[in-house]
Design a protein around this nucleic acid. Structure first.
Lengths: 194, 194
DNA sequence: ACACACATGTAATTGGTTACATGATTTC
DNA sequence: GAAATCATGTAACCAATTACATGTGTGT
């Protein structure tokens, strides 16, 4: 019960910025919480209908000039209340399923070479994402936004940046460990061939 | 395609330690990869039947003396091959959905008090888990295990420990930020009431 | 003319949890 | 004899992705 998080993502996004279409909501989600949350159209459109039926959002044909097919949504007072209610419910932390760690855990069956490839991809992914988030952070710092949500957004961004930096530090060490496993000799800080 | 990760978790676990029942496999999963992966019975039992039908594992009634109802499974050579194959496929990193961060991101609608409560729970959870993982790490260090998988297990453990330490550092800062938002005055390192 | 982004939706499938249902064995 | 743990499984439901299907508007 109370498990349909898509609804709340939409409410949250519309609470920050109203008059968005389903298409736009998805883009906003990707650009704001995308580094720790994803939503697909297959979930967004049905969710919008649900929210509409429950009076938590309202639909409006956009002002003339915009596309005729487009539907814009805004949050209602009831929707805002629902959102606030949900915010106060303790989050549940189920273990996030991490496929990378899973493969690494079992990797001895395939050897260090395979593990090193996975780690390399992991590093590359994280380096790129880190660059993006640091860019966002810099932008935020200069703009010193006046939105009420701003400090909260920056906290999550900071979390992301710290997380990615940690993964890169860890990766460097992992590479050293795996390379040592790769070469048959033990290289305990000494030359090869003992 | 190739998305049924439960199958591979089971194969991986049985590759490390054979002759386990479905019940036992689940426990092993919890105790080994539990901090980044979970499996429920509702998935394990059907998966075992699937794997059995495909010849990737074999079933055996346990030696006399054990429970009659119990079924023990082991990985077959075909299963091991399948596992190795999967290990070499690049992992996919979809953004892990983090409900805690999501609530924090939208928390301005509910205020710093609500956010602080969520952060407090987050810290508490992570402190506990960190203690458990550090315990495991210490145990691993003394035993200096001879299993081939050992270095890989330690890498994932190290990841967990680093991650949790990072979350606690971040949390401390988050609490400071949120407390500052809570009190109406700006406390820029100066006295209140300007 | 073509490509790309905007825009909305449904259907099929898979993935996954939770609840239900049952029963044996061990420990107190 | 009661409670906890071991043990297996199914059914109902919910969550989520992916593929399918369709069409408009904008820019080159």
């Amino acid at each position: 019960m109370e498990r349909n998080q898509t609804d709340f993502v939409i409410l949250g996004i519309l609470a920050i910025h109203p008059d968005q279409s389903g298409y736009e909501i998805r883009k906003t989600v990707q650009q704001s919480v995308g580094f720790f949350w994803g939503e697909s159209f297959g979930q967004i459109y049905p969710a919008l209908k649900r929210l509409l039926a429950n009076g938590l959002i309202v639909a409006r044909k956009p002002a003339s000039g915009a596309k005729a097919t487009r539907q814009e949504y805004s949050i209602t007072p009831a929707g805002r209340l629902r959102l606030q209610e949900w915010l106060a419910v303790p989050f549940r932390d189920d273990p996030p399923r991490d496929e990378f760690l899973l493969k690494l855990f079992f990797a001895s069956d395939a050897g260090p070479g395979v593990a090193l490839k996975q780690v390399a991809k992991f590093m590359e992914n994280n380096r790129q994402l880190l660059a993006t988030l640091e860019e966002l952070q810099k932008l935020g710092a200069t703009r010193s936004s006046h939105y009420a949500g701003f400090p909260y957004w920056m906290l999550t961004l900071d979390y992301g940046v710290r997380h990615l930096r940690m993964t890169l530090e860890w990766s460097q060490n992992a590479v050293v460990v795996l390379k040592a496993l790769e070469s048959p000799e033990k290289q305990e800080g000494r030359r090869k061939h003992v």
